[in-house]
Design a protein around this nucleic acid. Sequence first.
DNA 1: AATTCGTGGCT
DNA 2: TAGCCAAGAAT
Length: 376
Amino acid sequence: MIEWSQDTIDAFRQTLLDWYDTHGRDLPWRQDHDPYHVWISEIMLQQTQVNTVIPYYERFMTWFPTVQELATAPEARLMKAWEGLGYYSRARNLQKAARQIVDDYHGQWPQTADVLRELAGIGPYTAGAIASIAFNQPVPAVDGNAFRVFARLLKIDADIAKPQTRQIFGQVIARIISPDRPGDFNQAIMDLGASYMSAKNSDSEHSPVRQFNQAYLDGVEDQYPVKTKKPRPKPVAYFGLVMPDANQYLMEKRPSNGLLANFWTFPLVKQADVLVATDSGDTDSGDNEPTDSEILELLRQYLMTKYGFKVSLKPVQGRPVTHTFTHQKWTITLLQVIWNERPDLSYFPGEWLNVTKFDQIAWPKVQEKMWARVGK
DNA sequence: AATTCGTGGCT
DNA sequence: TAGCCAAGAAT
C-alpha cells in the first residue's frame, strides 16, 4: 500500500469532483438530498444493481411517499413492493426503522452516522452514506465500490472479504474524503467504481483518475482488490407438491426465520428427509439406488405418516425446477398430488389458497418458477 | 469470524 | 455453463 501526500490528496479531490460535476449519473434518488430518498435507495441498492433498483424505487415512492406512510403500511403491501428484489429482511427492517424514526425520534432524522447505526437495517456503510449525502457529514461510505477503487488506487493488499479490513479502508478514506463535499465525494467514488473502475471490463486507461491509480500505473490492476472466494452453492434436492382442489391449492407457509421467511410456496419436502426416514438398510445389500417408483412410494408413505395425507403421486412433465440462491442450489422435482381422501390439515403448516388471491401475494422467485410450470 | 440472508446480469 | 459480481446487514 502506498501513501499520498497532502498535495496528492488535494489534487485527487479536485479531479474526482470535477469529473463528478460533469459526468456523475443522473439517478431518481439524486434529485434532492432528502434523507428518506437517500435511505430507501441505499437499502434497495445493497447487493443490487442500479438498473434493477430504478423501477422499484420509483414505484416505492408512489406507494409510500413519506416515512410516516411506510411506518403504517400493511405488511402484505410492503412485501409486494419488494417482490423480486430479494433479501427480504431488508424490507422488514425498513418498516422497523420507519417506526423507530416516527416513534423514538418523533419524525426527526438523526444526522450522525453513529446514531443512524441504531436504526434497523442500517449498518456501517448505509450510515455513512446517509450521513454524508443527506447531512453533509465528512464520513466515508465503504461499499464494494470504495473497496475496489481504493484497493487499486493505493495498492491495498488487505483481503476485502474479511470484516476487519473495513477498518483499514475506513481510516484511509477518512483522510482523503473531501471535508467540503463528502456526499458528492462518496457518490463520485461509486460512479467511478461502476464505470472506469468496475470489477469487470474496467477502463482505467481512460479514467479521470488514472494518474492516481497506482495498480494501473504498475500494470497490476488485475490483482486488486484482494478477495478470497466464497464457497459455491450447496446442492439441495426437494419434492415440490402440486396439490390442487377446485380453484385452490394447498400451500405451505415458511417459518418466520431463515430463507424466504414467511413466504407461501407449494409444499416442499427435502428428498433427503424422505430417504433417511425409511433407510433402515438391513435388507439393502449396499449401494443400490432406489428406483424412481420406489422413491415415489417412500414419499407417499412419508406424507401419510407425517401429515396423515392419503394420496397418489404423479410426476409433472418436464425437467425439475432449479433455483440458485447465494449459498444453496435447489433442484425441485414437481409431483401432482391426487387425494384419495379429503385431507385434514391439523398437522400441516399451511392452508388452502384460492388462485384469485395469488396475484395479491408476494411470491419468491422459486415459487413463481413452480407456478409457471403448472399454473395458467 | 464465518454464515446466512435473493435475484439478475454478464462472460 | 458455472462462476462471479452488484451502493451489506444481522447473527
